[in-house]
Computed example of a mutant assay.
Amino acid sequence: MDGDLRHPQFTLGAAALGELMPMFLWLDPGCLIRAAGPTLQKLMGDGALGAHLTEVFVLRRPHALQHAQDLLRAQRLRMNLRATPGTGFKGIAVPLSSAGGVLLNLSFGYAVREAVRDHGLSDTDFAATDLAIELLYLAEAKAAVMGEIAKMAARLRGAKARAEEQAMTDALTGLGNRRAMEVGLERLLAEGRDFALLHLDLDFFKQVNDTLGHAAGDHVLTRVAEVLRTSVRGGDLVARVGGDEFVILLSGVRDTAPIRRVGALILDKMTAPIRFEGKPCRVAVSIGAVLSADRGGAGAERLLADADSALYASKRAGRARLTFLPADGSPETLAVGKLPR
Rank of each mutant, 00 (worst) to 15 (best):
M1D: 06
H7Y: 09
Q9A: 12
Q9V: 11
G13I: 08
M21R: 14
P22T: 14
M23G: 07
F24R: 01
W26E: 13
C31G: 03
L32N: 05
L32W: 01
L32C: 07
I33L: 11
T39V: 06
K42H: 11
G50C: 01
A51W: 03
T54M: 03
E55S: 12
L59T: 05
L59H: 05
L59V: 04
R60Q: 06
R61T: 15
A64T: 14
L65F: 14
Q66R: 15
Q69C: 07
L71Y: 03
Q75V: 14
N80F: 03
G86K: 08
T87K: 01
F89P: 10
S97Q: 14
S98F: 15
G101R: 07
G101K: 05
R113S: 11
R117T: 05
H119M: 11
D123N: 08
T124Y: 02
D125C: 04
Y137S: 11
V145K: 14
V145H: 15
E148D: 12
A153M: 10
L156D: 14
G158Y: 00
K160N: 10
A161E: 15
Q166H: 01
A167E: 03
G174L: 00
L175T: 05
A180F: 05
E182H: 12
G184T: 14
L185H: 04
L188D: 01
F195G: 04
F195I: 03
L198R: 06
L200Q: 09
F205I: 13
Q207R: 14
H219Q: 10
V220W: 05
R223S: 02
R229C: 03
T230F: 12
S231D: 11
V232Q: 12
R233W: 12
D236T: 08
A239R: 01
V241W: 09
L249Q: 03
L249I: 07
S251H: 04
R254T: 15
A257H: 08
P258V: 10
R260I: 02
A264M: 13
L265C: 04
L265Y: 00
I266W: 09
K269H: 10
M270R: 01
T271K: 13
R275I: 05
R275S: 12
E277I: 02
G278K: 13
C281V: 06
R282S: 03
R282A: 08
V283S: 04
A284P: 02
D294S: 04
R295E: 03
A298K: 08
E301Q: 09
L304F: 11
D308M: 04
Y312P: 04
A313H: 10
S314N: 13
K315S: 02
G318P: 00
R319F: 05
R319D: 02
T323L: 03
A327F: 08
D328C: 00
G329K: 00
L339H: 12
R341Q: 01
